[in-house]
Amino acid sequence: MTGFITHCWKSAGFDLWRAGCWLLGAWLLVCAPVWAQSTSAELTEFKVERQDGSLLLNAQFKLELGPAVEDALVKGLAVHFVAEAEVMRDRWYWYDKKLGAASRYYRLAFQPLTRRWRLNVASEPIAHSGATSSLSQSFDTLQDALNVVRRQTGWKVADMADVDADARQYVAYRFRLDVSQLPRPFQIAAGNQVDWRLDIARSLRLTADMVR
């Protein structure tokens, strides 16, 4: 009988903890000033260049975080961004052929003890703890950290040996705020807020001048 009661208490405690997480997630994402600018991103530069046998991507954009995202960051939630690029060759008879691809993952977090911002950058998904084979930098301000995310230069997306100057090819680029990396309660709350909807895409047709 004692074991049954203990099990019930444990189950009830877990349910209360889970409910508390849901409420906390909703509170963190909803309780932010509504008059500030929403999260937005706009590409201001998007080009490729040939260098040392590689096709390099250069992308720069304006990136501003909305109040709900900033508020969640200050309260201890890490935010993840993903940038992806693919070099594709047109094929009329089947799906387009992928000639090269590259990804970059960003994990942004605020450190309350030092009052600094930490940014991890890696070529593979970053663990929630940030402990992975990534480059880690600390910044005094949020804008300084975002400036690194805003400038993606010299990013190798393909080997020139795989690119045919006489074929029809293009570069497909995408940058997004990865809500799937948030804890489950936060994902549900974020789905109802425009501040957490950030997803931009652009494609660039390669010309002979770019790849010769």
Rank of each mutant, 00 (worst) to 15 (best):
M1G: 14
M1Q: 10
T2L: 11
T2N: 08
F4K: 12
I5H: 07
T6G: 10
T6L: 15
T6K: 15
H7Y: 08
H7I: 12
W9I: 15
W9V: 14
D15W: 12
D15N: 10
G20M: 09
L23D: 02
L23Y: 05
W27A: 12
A32I: 07
V34K: 09
W35V: 13
S40K: 08
E42W: 04
E42M: 06
T44K: 11
F46E: 01
F46Y: 04
K47H: 06
E49H: 11
R50W: 03
D52L: 13
G53V: 02
G53T: 04
L55A: 03
L56M: 09
A59P: 03
Q60G: 14
Q60W: 06
K62F: 07
L63H: 00
L63T: 01
L63F: 03
E64P: 02
G66D: 00
P67S: 12
A68C: 14
V69K: 00
E70C: 12
L73N: 01
V74G: 03
L77Q: 12
A78M: 03
V79M: 08
V79Y: 02
F81G: 02
E84D: 11
E84R: 13
V87G: 00
R89G: 05
D90N: 06
D90W: 09
R91K: 10
W92A: 09
W94G: 07
Y95E: 04
K97W: 14
K98I: 13
L99Q: 00
G100N: 03
A101W: 06
A101K: 12
A101I: 07
Y105I: 13
Y105N: 08
Y106C: 04
Y106L: 05
A109K: 04
A109W: 01
F110G: 00
L113W: 06
T114K: 06
W117Q: 01
R118G: 02
P125Y: 03
H128S: 11
G130I: 07
S136H: 07
S136D: 05
Q137R: 15
S138F: 10
T141E: 03
L142P: 05
D144C: 07
A145Y: 01
N147D: 14
V148I: 15
V149T: 09
V149P: 00
R150P: 10
R151L: 10
K156I: 12
V157P: 00
A158H: 01
M160A: 03
D164R: 14
D164F: 10
A165R: 12
A165Q: 11
D166W: 08
R168E: 13
V171A: 01
V171R: 00
A172V: 14
Y173E: 04
R174K: 14
L177A: 09
V179C: 08
Q181R: 11
F186E: 11
F186S: 14
Q187D: 08
A189T: 02
A189C: 06
A189M: 02
A190T: 06
G191Q: 02
G191W: 04
Q193Y: 06
V194L: 09
D195E: 03
R197G: 06
L198P: 01
I200N: 05
I200T: 06
R202L: 13
R205M: 08
A208W: 08
A208K: 15
D209E: 12
V211R: 01
